[in-house]
Nucleic acid binder design. Sequence first.
RNA 1: GCGGGAUUGGUGAAGUGGUUAACACGCCGGAUUGUGGCUCCGGUAUGCGUGGGUUCGAUCCCCACAUCUCGCCCCA
Length: 420
Amino acid sequence: MITKQKGTYDVVGMDAKKRKYVCDVIDAICEKYNYTYIETPIFESSELFHRSVGESSDIVTKETYDFVDRGERNITLRPEGTAGVVRSFIENKMYGNLSEPVKVYYNGPMFRYERPQSGRNRQFTQFGIEVIGTDDVMSDAEVISLAYNTYKLLGIDVKVQLNSLGDNESRDNYRKALMEYFKPNIDSLCEDCKVRLEKNPLRILDCKVDANSDILKNAPKTIDYLNEDSLNRFNKLQEYLDLMEIDYEVNTNLVRGLDYYNHTVFEIVADIPDFGSQSVLGGGGRYNGLIEQLDGPSTPAIGFAMGLDRTILAMESLDVKFKVRENIDIFIMYGNLDEKETACYLIQDLRMNGFVCETDYMGKSFKNQFKSADRFNSKFLVILNSDDIKNYKVKVKDNETKEEELVSINDLVDYLDMKL
RNA sequence: GCGGGAUUGGUGAAGUGGUUAACACGCCGGAUUGUGGCUCCGGUAUGCGUGGGUUCGAUCCCCACAUCUCGCCCCA
């Protein structure tokens, strides 16, 4: 038997319904915020991710799905969504008309070669948004607001963890300060952090091993190294978030895994028992340098992404209600081939008039068709009988009250419209 | 990439080194020859993840691999 690949999964049955519902909520909220749907390719030139996500991130150094195609191109299955959107922005010269910022959202599969565990797969789905073309702090607030409200509409109570890395100057200063601070204390850090010190000292801050050590607690804070402009931005953002009544807290140890972030960074965290490291449902930040880094004109931008699979898992864990259709309007029953023809005609007619209809395709006995109808939770049953059909009538049974009525086929649509 | 746990039918699961592998749900059929959801009766595994090994004999013991799962790393 051929089985699915490690770290992949089929979405079927109720899982599919739940996913569809979450996607519908996402679509609706993005429309409200006036974001436009965008699709970019699932595979891109490997170079794109090396130059955007950054060499210090594990995502690119050891987690990508790389291959050489028949034309000897180096291809990578996208591990995240921002790089592709930015590439598209540049390639399609969207910077040519920035009378308003470009606001887009995407929702699709991403790939990372990792050891799978709960809430983490090799193929997973991310929903994300990007705002390209404005440096206005209110756009930072808007992105956080959209992220926050998405979870809220889905029924998950979340908290926003917020930090600022400052502009490049601030970030460099901070980086230096951090290295100077940690160097004398290198022996008291965990093995991983010793490596991080050279490669990406910021990441030491969210190390789980050393989290409670004094060295980490007393480490220099990002905020102390923000220059005046960066600090003003950060304060202004918090004012806006207060105005929007968004539940956030400043976490000075928050840094993000991708190299391209500056200024605002944030994570969306759900308080779920036993969810551990999976409780980070999404995150994002500002990436003002990325477009230039990818050979576009210097353009400010900010984005957010959330893991769909993990979010659904969180909803299930919190016992949140998924609004999925749980019944059908009409089940059509028949007992012989002549009646089946009438069923064939009727179901077409009813469906085109907007009813959710089902019938039997298994040659079931009458009794078992009733069972089928119950399994589908049908609100009404249309029961075909040759004698009735001769008189151009059908029996309609209300499956709740059990009341049965003989209805003319001509009036059937109107009758059901009234009842439903 | 490292470490722990798991792998029995459509599903949830018992179980034992030795004739026919519990039970429950589901599904199908019948009691009820075209009006059901209750009840009762009957049916329902190319046989216990894959490949080796130990053994007279393995689903049960050993090894390898795969997948799932939990933790680490990393991240969404």
